[in-house]
């Protein structure tokens, strides 16, 4: 065989091999999280709060599963992410429509740059901002502060996905709506947004999955809590935050991996769902 053909085959094989190597960490991470976390997934995991380190140590010493679970984290995550989502969706879609409509204006260019800036902002910096904007004036860490941080994180993602999906619709669609005498508003609500549903919904789901796993800003905004707390003005917990709090406590290991498993399942499911929607 010709040397060039051998070289060609080697390159092909190399690309396939390196690509497969890329997937090794994915499977390694999923394997670790499932193998180490599955043992603690039981009814208590979802219905009880985290035990203190002492209780956990005693249980581990006796070779039992750690009593308790991550209920306060689950409640906290919901209490933080749901309000943030409800606020970010209308504002995000509104902003996306604005950027789509005012495509070439100078204000739109500035806004687009700001949206990109917020999107690229390291989440820990967002934590500082919300600490200064919300925690300091309220004189307390709180679920509200966490929600504000998540809201600001989700906003640019929803804005950009709305704008980009609208932009991918054929231009004559909106012209057709307008030639039928529809107002801008009606054409947007009845034709453009419904046609863009798939893309926008994908953007929203990806934004939700992103903030559910987010931890850094939470350390500076909700602080953490050992008990279930429904008051949004009080410090609270979150599933991701529990992992951070306990990751180097040897007694808590298996509980932490279970929390990681829960988080991973939720996030990957949301991603899969998003992918489905973007195709359908």
């Amino acid at each position: 065989m010709n040397v060039r053909i051998i070289k060609d085959k080697m390159m092909h094989a190399g690309v396939v091999f390196v690509t497969l190597c890329t997937l090794v960490p994915l499977f390694a991470i999923i394997y670790s999280v499932v193998a180490k976390g599955i043992g603690q997934i039981n009814w208590d995991f979802f219905t009880k709060v985290t035990p203190n380190s002492m209780e956990a140590m005693l249980a581990v010493a006796e070779g039992k599963v750690i009593p308790g679970g991550v209920l306060q984290g689950i409640v906290g995550t919901l209490l933080i992410v749901l309000p943030a989502t409800f606020a970010a969706v209308p504002f995000g879609i509104g902003g996306g429509i604005y950027l789509y409509e005012k495509d070439n204006s100078r204000l739109a260019a500035v806004l687009r740059m700001i949206v990109d800036m917020i999107q690229g902002l390291p989440s820990i910096i967002l934590g500082i901002i919300v600490y200064l904007w919300v925690v300091v004036p309220m004189k307390s860490y709180s679920a509200i502060a966490g929600s504000v941080a998540m809201f600001i994180m989700m906003l640019p993602m929803i804005v950009r996905s709305t704008e980009e999906t609208l932009r991918m619709l054929p231009n004559n669609l909106r012209e057709a709506g307008l030639t039928l005498g529809g107002t801008n508003f009606r054409v947007m609500m009845r034709v453009m947004l419904p046609s863009a549903f798939g893309g926008t919904a994908t953007g929203i789901l990806l934004a939700v999955s992103r903030v559910i796993g987010e931890t850094a800003p939470l350390t500076l905004t909700i602080l953490g809590s050992a008990n279930v707390c429904y008051d949004p003005r009080e410090p609270n917990s979150a599933v991701s935050l529990l992992i951070w709090e306990f990751y180097n406590d040897p007694n808590m290991q298996s509980l932490i991996w279970s929390a990681a498993l829960l988080l991973l399942v939720i996030v990957l499911l949301l991603n899969l769902l998003a992918k489905k929607l973007s195709k359908g």
Binding site: T19, T22, L23, P25, L26, A28, I29, S32, V33, K36, S209, I212, G213, E214, T215, A216, S240, I243, W244, Y247, N248, Q253, I256, W257, A260, L263, L264, V267, L268, L270, N271, K275
Partner: peptide, 24 residues
């Protein structure tokens, strides 16, 4: 399939990467 798997890497939360890095 490869694309989806690679995209899944982007979905894994940072805190889980950290935990895995620390423990594995």
């Amino acid at each position: 399939i490869i694309d989806s798997a690679v995209a899944m890497l982007a979905g894994i939360p940072s805190i889980i990467y950290g935990l895995w890095g620390f423990a594995v």
